[in-house]
Amino acid sequence: MSNQNTVTPGLAIFERLAPLGYPLIRITAGLMLMPHGAQKLFGWFGGYGLEATGQFFEGSLGMSPGILFALLAGLVEFFGGLALVLGLLTRPAALAVTFMLGVALTVHTANGFFWTDGGVEYPLLWALTAFGIFLRGGDRFSLDRRFGLPF
């Protein structure tokens, strides 16, 4: 005889809460990206704003034109993060974040693995998280689902 309920007795609460796990990851990822974009675009949260960030991108990272790359990174982080929070156009936003973090990985590769040394650990974690969100889409608790969008 097959037992359909595979949840350990007493742990049924986890089965009920499990559907909240994915939106928690998607929303948290978006919320954690947005301040980085706000730093680049608006100078908020101790950031330097678009012009100074562009100068850093060009002068220190060799990304020219720096202001364009700073603008693109800021837009992806801020508005892509917002899209993840809302679950609106989730897959395109997550793909843009994945791509942007892939570029960030190239900057951090020379510093090794550990984030404490400026390595790839942190951007790699976020790139993989964004890619996982891309694969799954907005899911149940999203505006994509609410509006019937295929994202």
Results as ranks from 00 to 15, higher is better:
S64A: 15
L50M: 08
G43P: 08
G74C: 02
G62I: 14
T53F: 03
E77V: 00
F78W: 04
F78H: 01
G62W: 14
Y48S: 15
G43W: 06
E51Y: 04
A52K: 11
L68V: 10
L75W: 00
L75Q: 00
G54D: 03
G66W: 07
S64N: 14
G66Y: 07
M63D: 09
L68G: 07
A70W: 04
L50K: 09
W44L: 10
L50H: 09
V76D: 02
G66Q: 08
G80E: 04
F56K: 09
G59F: 14
F42T: 01
L72G: 02
Y48I: 09
L68R: 08
W44Y: 08
L72P: 03
F42I: 04
A52W: 04
I67T: 12
S64F: 12
W44R: 09
G81N: 06
G43F: 07
L71H: 00
G46K: 11
A70N: 03
G59W: 11
F42N: 04
P65Q: 11
G62E: 15
M63V: 10
P65F: 10
G47M: 11
S64Y: 13
G74T: 01
Y48M: 14
F57N: 02
I67R: 15
G59H: 15
E77F: 03
L75H: 00
G80I: 01
S64E: 13
S60C: 13
L68K: 04
G66M: 09
L61T: 14
L50A: 07
F56C: 08
G43I: 04
P65I: 13
F42K: 05
G54W: 00
E77T: 04
F42E: 03
